[in-house]
Simulated assay, not measured.
Amino acid sequence: MSLFGQRVAALAGVPAERLERLAGGDLSEVLLLRRPDGRCTVAKGGPAIATEAAMLRALARVGVPVPMVEGEHEGVLLLEHIPNDNVFSPHAWADIGAAVRRLHQRTGERYGWPVDYRLGTVELDNRQGNDWALFWGEQRLVSAVRVLDRPWRVRVERLAAKLPALLPAAPEPAFLHGDLWSGNILVREGRLAALIDPACYGGHKEVDLAMLALFDAPPPAFWDSYGPLEPGWEERRPIYQLFPALVHLRLFGSGYAPMVERLLAAVGV
């Protein structure tokens, strides 16, 4: 058993055989804890569990379904276990569209989040501000590419310099999930059960939609439920998709280089 598993078992006061590794968990260890009374709890590790817990609670206050936070203990986040059958029916996609619309309707005054966060080893600079093009260019794209080879850095920096002409000057700072793809969406019996693994901040609502469309193909039921998009979204989408592509290139290697290349070519750099 891993050290994390040993910590969870000791914390819950259960034998190791009551723990099992859950699918996923690419960026942190995730275990299912079967309690003696029959209840199941998800245990997650990571360096910022308090921040993740705060994000989940914030999502819940907006009315978005998320797992209930059961506790935070010395690097262990305990969450309600929500069964997931992974069947993305049209009804489920419609639920997802409505939930994301409800999330994005909650707006703030600035871009960013009160504290920084991370996706695996990729730091997220969440300093709050009022310049969207600067936030996206410097605190997302340039920050993500900083440790990559120079040709990638040059092209991304060139794009960042052009963003004031390519992005809306002051979109409403919508409440973003921040890591929205089907792996972070739980569905059951044809309906949305919960959104998980947030990396929240305030930003242009198209960011969430672009990432969802990068790794998935939401059907018309999602878009009909979400509602109309702003003019020019097609041209902006590769700019917003570039950030999760760069994160995946850093975390998972050169297999994502063609995706990054395609998106850079789409925006002309």
Score class of each variant (00 low, 15 high):
Val187Trp: 07
Ala210Gly: 12
Val147Phe: 15
Arg250Leu: 14
Trp132Gln: 07
Ser225Ala: 15
Ser182Tyr: 13
Ala199Tyr: 01
Arg155Val: 11
Ile196Asp: 03
His73Asp: 14
Tyr226Pro: 04
Gly112Met: 02
Asp85Phe: 02
Gly203Tyr: 05
Asp37Lys: 01
Arg127Lys: 06
Leu79Phe: 10
Pro67Asp: 00
Leu31Glu: 05
Trp181Gln: 10
Gly13Trp: 00
Asp125Phe: 01
Glu74Trp: 06
Ala160Met: 01
Thr41Arg: 12
Gly255Thr: 00
Arg188Cys: 14
Asn184Lys: 08
Val8Met: 00
His73Trp: 14
Arg188Glu: 12
Thr51Ser: 08
Leu251Val: 03
Arg150Glu: 15
Ala53Leu: 01
Arg146Asp: 13
Phe252Asn: 11
Pro231Leu: 11
Ala50Gln: 14
Ala16Cys: 03
Ala98Asp: 02
Leu11Phe: 09
Gly253Asn: 10
Gly253His: 12
Phe215Cys: 04
Asp224Lys: 13
Trp223Gln: 07
Leu59Met: 15
Trp132Lys: 07
Ala10Cys: 09
Val145Trp: 11
Pro114Gln: 00
Glu72His: 08
Ala193Gln: 10
Gln139Ile: 00
Tyr111Gln: 09
Ala194Glu: 06
Pro114Cys: 02
Leu27Pro: 08
Leu214Gly: 07
Val69Glu: 03
His81Met: 11
Ala257Ile: 03
Ala194Asp: 03
Val156Pro: 14
Glu74Gly: 01
Glu206Ser: 02
Pro228Tyr: 04
Ser143Glu: 12
Leu78Ala: 08
Ala169Cys: 04
Glu230Ala: 15
Val247Arg: 06
Gly178Ala: 08
Gly129Thr: 00
Ile96Ser: 04
Tyr256Thr: 10
Ala174Cys: 15
Arg146Pro: 03
Phe222Gln: 05
Gly190Asp: 05
Ala43Lys: 08
Glu70Lys: 12
Leu264Ile: 02
Asp208Thr: 00
Arg127Ala: 14
Glu17Asn: 15
Leu56Cys: 12
Gly46Asn: 04
Ala170Phe: 03
Ala58Lys: 08
Trp233Lys: 08
Ala23Gln: 15
Arg101Thr: 04
Glu72Pro: 01
Cys40Asn: 11
Arg155Met: 07
Glu109Met: 13
Met68Pro: 08
Arg146Lys: 12
Ala160Val: 04
Asn184Phe: 07
Val142Ala: 13
Arg110Phe: 14
Arg34His: 15
His248Ile: 06
Leu32Thr: 00
Leu59Phe: 09
Ala54Tyr: 02
Gly120Ser: 02
Ile49Gly: 15
Gly202Leu: 09
Ile49Pro: 11
Gln105Pro: 04
His91Asp: 14
Thr51Gly: 08
Asp125Ile: 02
Ala9Phe: 05
Ser254Asp: 12
His248Lys: 03
Arg21Asp: 07
